[in-house]
Amino acid sequence: QTIHNGDQTYHYDNPEEAIKVAQKLAKIYNLTVTVKGNTVQVH
């Protein structure tokens, strides 16, 4: 599972963990989380 947060990319073995982290980032920075296959984008 990969999270793209602007210019930063994070890799997680656990998809659920990746989505949790993405949602935390989204709340902190007031962003949107988009899940596309194995990629979670925060923008």
Score class of each variant (00 low, 15 high):
Gln1Trp: 04
Gln1Tyr: 06
Thr2Ala: 12
Thr2Pro: 12
Thr2Gln: 11
Thr2Tyr: 12
Thr2Val: 10
Ile3Ala: 12
His4Pro: 10
His4Ala: 09
Asn5Gly: 10
Asn5His: 12
Gly6Ile: 10
Gly6Thr: 10
Asp7Thr: 15
Asp7Gln: 11
Asp7Asn: 10
Gln8Gly: 08
Gln8Met: 13
Gln8Tyr: 14
Gln8His: 15
Tyr10Asn: 02
Tyr10Thr: 03
Tyr10Trp: 09
Tyr10Gln: 02
His11Met: 07
His11Gln: 09
Tyr12Cys: 15
Tyr12Asn: 01
Tyr12Ser: 02
Tyr12Arg: 01
Tyr12Phe: 15
Tyr12Val: 03
Tyr12His: 02
Asp13Ile: 06
Asp13Glu: 08
Asp13His: 08
Asn14Phe: 04
Asn14His: 05
Asn14Leu: 04
Asn14Cys: 11
Pro15His: 13
Pro15Cys: 13
Pro15Met: 09
Glu16Trp: 10
Glu16Leu: 08
Glu16Ile: 07
Glu17Arg: 06
Glu17Leu: 10
Glu17Gly: 02
Glu17Asn: 04
Ala18Arg: 00
Ala18Leu: 03
Ile19Trp: 14
Ile19Met: 12
Lys20Asn: 06
Lys20Cys: 15
Lys20His: 06
Lys20Val: 05
Lys20Asp: 06
Val21Cys: 14
Val21Ala: 15
Val21Pro: 00
Ala22Tyr: 03
Ala22Leu: 04
Ala22Val: 03
Gln23Val: 08
Gln23Ala: 10
Lys24Ser: 09
Lys24Phe: 15
Leu25Thr: 01
Leu25Val: 02
Ala26Ile: 14
Ala26Ser: 11
Ala26Asp: 12
Ala26Pro: 02
Lys27Ser: 14
Lys27Val: 12
Lys27Arg: 07
Ile28Glu: 15
Ile28Gln: 11
Ile28Tyr: 15
Ile28Trp: 14
Tyr29Met: 04
Tyr29Gln: 09
Tyr29Leu: 07
Asn30Ala: 06
Asn30Trp: 13
Asn30Gly: 15
Asn30His: 11
Asn30Gln: 07
Asn30Phe: 10
Leu31Ala: 07
Leu31Met: 07
Leu31Val: 09
Leu31Pro: 00
Val33Phe: 03
Val33Pro: 00
Thr34Gly: 01
Thr34Tyr: 05
Thr34Pro: 00
Thr34Leu: 05
Val35Asn: 01
Val35Glu: 01
Val35Gln: 03
Val35Ser: 02
Val35Cys: 00
Lys36Ala: 08
Lys36Thr: 10
Lys36Gln: 11
Lys36Ile: 14
Lys36Pro: 01
Gly37Ile: 03
Gly37Leu: 04
Gly37Pro: 01
Asn38Asp: 03
Asn38Glu: 02
Thr39Tyr: 05
Thr39Ser: 07
Thr39Lys: 05
Thr39His: 04
Val40Cys: 08
Val40Gln: 00
Gln41Phe: 15
Gln41Val: 15
Gln41Thr: 15
Gln41Tyr: 15
Gln41Ile: 15
Gln41Asp: 03
Gln41Leu: 14
Gln41Pro: 00
Val42Gly: 00
His43Val: 06
His43Arg: 07
His43Gly: 04
